[in-house]
């Protein structure tokens, strides 16, 4: 997608968000009479109008610019970068669950091990070294957060 089309699309999405905000703010309790600023929906509604105006300006601005076919804003450098991004995202989402069920040290160990494995290219993978780094990093995290800062983490099955 070119930068111009992207700006138009983003503007439309923000305009829809502004509309949604406007409607929800309108359903907030209001008092009859009195100063409008006292009502709960007053300020959110004002922001929704501002967002609406700005998103329309963005769309107009984008439409008025010349489409130079610039596709420089690539989301992923390569297909493998996309897969890495996806795996990172899955690991991030899994982290809180693993932390709750197995403990934060175990969750951190799994997370770091998977990430270092994934970010290393095939010829550069040294399992022993990676294991060492993962252990060191997990220990550092454990010492700082559990022992020094004494953060009460959820009690998982492991540590």
């Amino acid at each position: 997608m070119t930068k111009k089309n992207m700006d138009v699309l983003v503007g439309i999405i923000f305009f829809a968000l502004a509309g949604f905000l406007y409607i929800v703010a309108g359903q907030m309790p209001t008092r009859d009479g009195g100063i409008a600023a006292l009502n709960t929906g007053f300020y959110p509604r004002m922001l929704s109008i501002l967002l609406g105006i700005l998103s329309i300006s963005m769309v107009i601005g984008a439409v008025r610019t010349q489409d130079d076919g610039d596709k420089s804003q690539k989301w992923w450098a390569t297909k493998s970068a996309f897969i890495m991004f996806l795996v990172t995202f899955v690991l991030l989402v899994a982290y809180p669950f693993v932390m709750e069920y197995l403990g934060f040290a175990t969750a951190s160990f799994i997370f770091i091990a998977c990430m270092t494995w994934m970010l290393s290219s095939n010829e550069n993978r040294n399992p022993l070294f990676m294991f060492g780094i993962t252990i060191v990093l997990t220990t550092v995290v454990y010492i700082i957060f559990k022992m020094v800062l004494a953060i009460p983490f959820p009690r998982g099955l492991l540590i």
């Binding site: 970010l119 290393s120 990093l137 953060i151």
Partner: peptide, 13 residues
Amino acid sequence: KYLIPAILVFSLI
């Protein structure tokens, strides 16, 4: 490749 996981774990915890 080691720094990114470390920063991510620091951010999460």
